[in-house]
Design a binder for these strands. Structure first.
Length: 914
RNA sequence: GGGCCUGUAGAUCAGGGGUAGAUCGUUGCGUUCGCAACGCAAAGGCCGCGGGUUCGAAUCCCGCCGGGUCCA
């Protein structure tokens, strides 16, 4: 790989290649006096207080300077992509500009939107969340300015030399002394690709990385990097990344990147937190400069390292760690809030709905972290106000302002939800703490993990609340990794692969949408799997189940049970393996009723999606869908439950769309063109592979879709929404039926209604009132019944008292009340046992044998145990029982033994009294 | 996608195979010129729904519905 960096451009422009004495890596520089590679920790920041460009820039002027520079140099400016990676199913957030063009552009399957191109792509990375605010340089959200160039063998636009030259020219156009730049060799590898790369370092700050991606990971490849083997690719890509915020920082030389990038918001938040943030004061600025310098050369992810950093800073400015801590922590929190609120503006602005799963979870994570920090600083301003401040600060993203109402509603709801969680949590912690206080123990770590993992209570809060209750808590630095350890990874299932060297099957189901029969040639037979040259059988995909039907020849007929698409080859799985041979011509027939039901449900899904968007808002995004013959379900992102009114409105709009009898348009389009024309809403149902994608338009709904559809919406028939379900926080599921299935649904409902009203002898419209009345009456009767039983018990006691037998001074009573239920027996028995010297033994035979025994206080003292008596009696009647010494219940199945059991009970009492 | 917790009176929660509880709130009575406070009493429960185990389930098991939460 060494040769990769011997660029003509370096040689022709007086660069020398040196080796850093500290880290031993090679770097290129114009300045022969430069000793070190320029990268921390070998050097530390020198740009703080000494800006490297000739003037100060802010975010938008710097972005514009960059993009227009590359425009002038033959690049086409491309609009940014969303921060939520809608076009990918392997990552949630856009983490780099190149992510916009993966996987199909980088693999060469799809041409880039322009070539070469330049872009400023907002990216979100949550890996170093803890360092944000503290290190002076970390951000969750940053814009990666980039120029990309997609080369292929025989069609090279530019490669390494030109890339470095452009970088040099850009820097010098900003007024940088080029002697200050070093290009450090740093081979890059990631995501299955690799290549040589240089880091662009100025003043100790990495301003950009220039990656020359030309390798792909191949098992047994000839190039070895970090233990993996690679091969050269046919297409090779210039992948650059220039940190917009870092450029701004370098142009200002402020103590932290936050003060450089959003001075206004930082100051406003400092005011709200009541912190005097006088960055012009040299003494004050020095603290944060020193902190950023030291933090620049170390990893501060752990608590121990943070302390070390504090110590270093404290030493240089001559103070104690405690004093420093007290000064810095609030300021660092403000920095973090500033960063996080910007992150939220992007996340929510681009349509992420907070949830407890997937990308929504990440949004909630950041949101709650921000709320926590605000609470610590006692900032009372609602979070939404701060996010609004950010949004107003970005006139270049008008789309955020359009969504402001939805964003406001979401943030307010989330704010409330978190407050609820914390309140619930605090109570729980108090209770738990008191439990351990009683035992005079520390609250163990396991309890802390449980509280966080199950109830979302941060350990810091647990510690604080527990402390107030006077209980110590054990909280190690490694807390969060301990939690992570509890969650084991799920193993990924490998997709079944068939080693097929066959041409893609001709998909008749796209061409002949009204046909149910076809003829085809058998290309291959593997056991019961048959591959044809063409087929009308739709394979499972896009939430639509496969077609069923038959394949037949003169003598044979086989049922098709499963159809799968394996990389364009359609495989028919039949229930028998006889007959068909390579080269045969077969007749195929699909089950049209089944197919038609699928088509109706599929087109209906698009319509329901469109209606839901119209009713609920633009933030609605499909996260999943499944169709079958009698129903379909559609999962949508939404931040609250769908109300009954909304539900009916969606149903109405969907049916109106049907009744308009709109045509369903299907076009195959070039992917780039389609994205340009319709945006990423196309990929709601998933991201299809390939350069050409199938675009389906119904009304205002446009989606990339590979399913089969009816030609006009009128053919769907009625759409009946069945229910909504919240499958996850932030995801609502709508279940519905279409066509004949919908009619059946409605008939079923009617029948339920009719049966219910028949049972009550009222008409359906009176059902709610009548049911209500019956229920209330039932409750009253139940109460009355209970009262009567209690009264009856009293009467019975008086009547039966005379039957009691005297045993050693105790009044023992054993009686059968044949029709009494357990409750009555208990009431009577308890009534008896209010007399200290009574033992009441009662039995009934309603629904088997029931036995209840109660003993008065004195009887118990003398050794009578109701539980023991019941146990013994119950055994006799073939059951079991038990209870407390004062009252016990039991029973069995053998009704014929009741009398014997009652007779023996007196003996039992006698026995214990001896 | 993978876990964990949870559903009991209007509210907050105990109980965790054997007669459904506490506190607050509500209502009534007492005390007071009146209120607050206090005292006494009452009303208020399909113990989320449906199955199973059991003589007996709010309690144990399974499924469903609802709520919460962590991780990838």
């Amino acid at each position: 790989m060494q040769d990769e960096y011997q660029l003509d451009y370096f040689k022709e422009n007086g660069f020398v290649r040196k080796t850093c004495p500290k880290c031993k890596t090679n770097f290129w520089t114009r300045d022969t006096d430069t000793e070190f590679c320029g990268d921390p920790p070998c050097v530390s920041y020198s740009f703080i207080g000494a800006p490297v460009f000739k003037k100060e820039y802010d975010i938008s002027t710097m972005r514009e300077a960059y993009l227009s520079f590359f425009e002038k140099n033959g690049h086409t400016r491309v609009d940014r992509y969303p921060v939520i990676a809608r076009w990918r199913d392997d990552i949630y957030l856009t983490i780099a500009s190149i992510a916009d063009f993966q996987p199909f552009v980088t693999s060469g399957l799809v041409p880039p939107p322009a070539n070469p191109l330049t872009i400023s792509q907002p990216c979100i990375r949550l890996d170093d969340l803890d360092a944000v605010g503290r290190s002076g340089r970390h951000l969750t959200t940053f814009e990666m300015m980039a120029h990309h160039c997609f080369n292929s063998r025989g069609n090279e636009i530019y490669w390494k030399d030109r890339t470095v030259e452009l970088c040099d020219n850009l820097l010098s156009s900003l007024g940088l002394d080029l002697n200050a730049v070093t290009y450090k060799e740093a081979p890059w590898a990631g995501g299955g690709n690799a290549g040589p790369s240089v880091e662009v370092l100025v003043g100790g700050l990495e301003l950009a990385t220039l990656v020359f991606m030309d390798l792909k990971q191949v098992k047994g490849g000839s190039i070895d990097i970090k233990g993996e083997t690679y091969e050269k690719m046919d297409n090779y890509i210039v992948d650059t990344g220039y940190g917009l915020e870092r450029f701004v920082w370098a142009s200002r030389g402020s103590p932290t990147i936050y003060d450089a990038v959003f001075p206004k918001i930082v100051n406003e938040l400092m005011d709200l937190a009541g912190i005097e943030h006088s960055i012009e004061n040299p003494e004050y600025a020095k603290i944060f400069s020193q902190n950023a310098r030291f933090a620049g050369v170390m990893d501060i992810s752990g608590q121990a390292n943070l302390l070390q950093l504090r110590k270093k800073v404290a030493d240089t400015i001559g103070t104690t760690v405690e004093k420093l801590q007290k000064l810095m922590v609030p300021v660092e929190s403000v920095y973090a809030i500033t960063d996080h609120s910007r992150c939220l503006a992007f996340m929510l602005g681009d349509g992420i709905i907070p949830s407890n799963v997937k990308a929504g979870y990440l949004a909630r994570l950041v949101l709650r972290r921000t709320l926590r920090l605000m609470k610590e600083l006692d900032i009372r301003e609602p979070l939404i106000e701060i996010i609004e401040m950010q949004i107003k600060n970005f006139p270049e993203y008008p789309e955020f302002r359009e969504r402001l109402d939805t964003i406001r509603e979401i943030v307010v709801l989330e704010d409330e939800k978190y407050a609820d969680t914390i309140e619930r949590g605090t109570k729980l912690v108090k209770k738990t703490a008191l439990h351990f206080k009683d035992k005079k123990e520390k609250m163990p770590l396991g309890e802390l993990i449980q509280l966080y993992d199950t109830h979302g209570i941060p350990p810091e809060i647990t510690r604080e609340v527990a402390k107030e209750a006077g209980v110590d808590v054990e909280l190690p630095d490694t807390f969060y990794s301990l939690v992570a350890k509890k969650h084991s990874k799920a193993e990924e299932e490998e997709a079944e692969e068939m080693p097929l060297e066959l041409p893609p099957t001709r998909k008749l189901y796209y061409e002949q949408t009204e046909q149910s029969e076809f003829e085809a040639k058998v290309l291959e037979v593997i056991e019961n799997k048959i591959i044809l040259d063409r087929t009308l059988f739709y394979p499972e995909g896009g939430g639509q189940p496969c077609d069923h039907g038959t394949l037949s020849m003169e003598d044979y007929i086989a049922n098709v049970a499963d159809v799968q698409n394996m990389n364009g080859v359609i495989v028919h799985e039949t229930d028998s393996d006889f007959g068909f041979k390579k080269g045969d011509t077969v007749k195929g027939k699909i089950d049209w009723e089944r197919r038609l039901a699928h088509m109706r449900h599929h087109t209906a899904t698009h319509i329901v999606n469109e209606s839901a968007k119209a009713v609920l808002g633009k933030h609605i995004w499909q996260t999943g869908a499944q169709k079958s013959t009698d129903r379909a379900r559609l999962d949508l992102t939404h931040y609250k439950r769908i109300t009954d009114d909304e539900f009916r409105e969606i149903e109405l709009l969907a049916n109106r769309a049907v009744m308009k009898n709109q045509p369903v348009h299907i076009d195959w389009m070039d992917r780039v063109e389609a994205e340009k024309k319709y945006g990423f809403v196309l990929y709601q149902g998933g991201v299809p592979p390939g350069r050409e994608i199938r675009i389906l338009r119904v009304g205002s709904d446009v989606e990339a879709c590979g399913g089969t559809h009816v030609s006009n919406t009128g053919l769907i028939g009625p759409i009946k929404l069945i229910k909504t379900e919240r499958i996850q926080d932030g995801v609502e599921r709508i279940e519905f039926s279409a066509g004949e299935a919908a009619v059946k649904r409605m008939q079923e409902r009617d029948e339920l209604l009719n049966k219910s009203s028949d049972a009550l002898r009222v008409s359906p419209e009176h059902l709610p009132d009548t049911v209500n009345r019956f229920f209330n009456e039932w409750k009253e009767f139940k109460k009355e019944n209970e009262r009567l039983k209690a009264e009856l018990a009293e009467v019975r006691v008086k009547a039966m008292m005379g039957d009691a037998v005297d045993i050693n001074g105790l009044k023992v009573l054993s009686e059968k009340l044949p029709h009494a239920d357990v409750e009555e027996l208990i009431k009577v028995a308890t009534e008896f046992s209010k007399n200290d010297d009574v033992v009441a033994i009662l039995a009934s035979e309603s629904g088997g044998v029931k036995i209840v025994v109660a003993a008065g206080v004195r009887a118990q003292k003398m050794g009578v145990n109701a539980g023991a008596i019941v146990r013994e009696m119950s055994k006799l009647v073939g059951g079991g029982g038990g209870g407390k010494p004062g009252i016990a219940q039991g029973g069995g199945t053998d009704v014929t033994m009741i009398d014997e059991a009652l007779e023996k009970s007196a003996e039992m009492v006698r026995r214990v009294l001896k």
